[in-house]
Design a protein around this nucleic acid. Structure first.
Lengths: 222, 222
DNA sequence: TGCAAAACATGACATCCGTCATGTTTTAAA
DNA sequence: TTTAAAACATGACGGATGTCATGTTTTGCA
């Protein structure tokens, strides 16, 4: 709880009030925190685990927009205003714990504390930059470059250093990766086979290790 | 000036102070408001004209992330925090007028006025949703669907109703469209030729008319 | 008005990637 | 430990789209 920036901004009575408004909810694999089109009721913070944000198109094809890690905020944005509905689906990758508060309490917090509001502005700004960078990569790069960029990004942000390389801490199937880089499972399998053959990566979903992040970086920006 | 939401939030002395901090700058075609990698100095608002936000990849290929119209804010996000640099380039499409204020004055405004901060949060949230929707479309749809979606979007947001259909008010070449939907100029020319043949659109850059927005909508979600 | 530059157009061809099919390996739960 | 399901793997094939080349039309400026 101490590692969530937004919650450390307030102090004294304001902080107590805030913590009092927060409730914890737990979800497991296969459940949904909310679905695209649902009404927006709460503001959320990831406490433990990983949550993926997904959108679908009319054919039922899925696209993963973002993996939320502990400390990440969601549904803190416009969806929460003027009765709009969730623009995407939030689902846990394994067991997760979510802190949430009512929209009303959230807006009151933002009104009372300029620091909290600035923190949210900063967070949303970072998310916007990320989303635009993602759009750029989808628009301009080939599938192998996008996949290499994903591995570099996950390795740098969440990777755990080991003897053989950098291990990714979350379970991540080829299908998950395909949804994240905007391609098909088969294409990811083929590219990962090539990467494995070239000793850039090893392992599969439960134990994925990046063995040569520098060469992956080079592929990402070829 | 009266149609910029953010500027109408403050009143009395606060509003006077704000207006005093704003300076106007004009730019013409071929100039840059700022470039990718430049240090962030100001917070900006579009007053008149259209500004495009662009990113490039190492090969020099360009991708247009967003067309900013009057009232749009930019560089209101994380870039302005902790001395980061501009993640993209802002360039005018023709003559534009920009209002800007120093980062310092911007942050002071946000601290003094919770309403202003909430307005920025709301704006950033909308921009984030837009960017994520764009990423989804790039990830999942074919080039003709993306182009049809672009035409529908521009027609709905900025189009001017005419006898023959909906005219787009800004100059928009095939190359501009290609950069907006993540494809090449040749591909856009081919698809637009098909659309023209099917009486869905007519005209070129200076005078582009959407003749059948419903069928374009259908193509976008086929 | 004339002319160079920009925009539009079209063909040929290569390649990336999606789709479908089939088979093997690994995982997770009974 | 067994076993069904999920994940991984690979081939064949076709379609969408990028690339390069060439030519025409339109635009904007001198």
């Amino acid at each position: 709880l101490a590692q969530i920036p937004l919650l450390n901004i307030l102090s004294g009575q304001d902080r107590q009030r805030l913590l009092h408004e927060l409730t914890e909810a737990r979800y497991g694999k296969g459940e949904f925190i909310f679905r695209e089109g649902d009404p927006t009721e709460y503001f959320h913070i990831v406490k433990e685990g990983t949550v993926k944000c997904v959108k679908s198109n009319p054919d039922g094809k899925e696209c993963t927009l973002k993996m939320l890690m502990p400390g990440d905020l969601f549904c803190c944005d416009a969806a929460a205003f003027d009765g709009a509905r969730h623009p995407g689906t939030a689902q846990p990758m394994g067991d997760v714990s979510i802190l949430r508060m009512s929209k009303k309490a959230y807006f009151e917090m933002l009104r009372r504390s300029p620091d909290a509001a600035l923190e949210v502005i900063k967070y949303l700004g970072n998310r916007l930059n990320e989303a635009q960078e993602k759009a750029k990569v989808l628009a301009l790069e080939r599938a192998d470059q996008r996949l290499a960029a994903l591995l570099v990004d996950l390795g740098t942000r969440n990777g755990i250093k080991e003897a053989q390389g950098i291990r990714l801490p979350m379970r991540l199937t080829r299908e998950d990766m395909a949804n994240m880089v905007g391609t098909t499972t088969e294409t990811v399998i083929r590219i990962m086979s090539r990467f494995k053959h070239d000793n850039l990566v090893s392992g599969t979903a439960n134990r994925l290790v990046i063995r040569n992040i520098d060469r992956l970086k080079a592929i990402a920006s070829t």
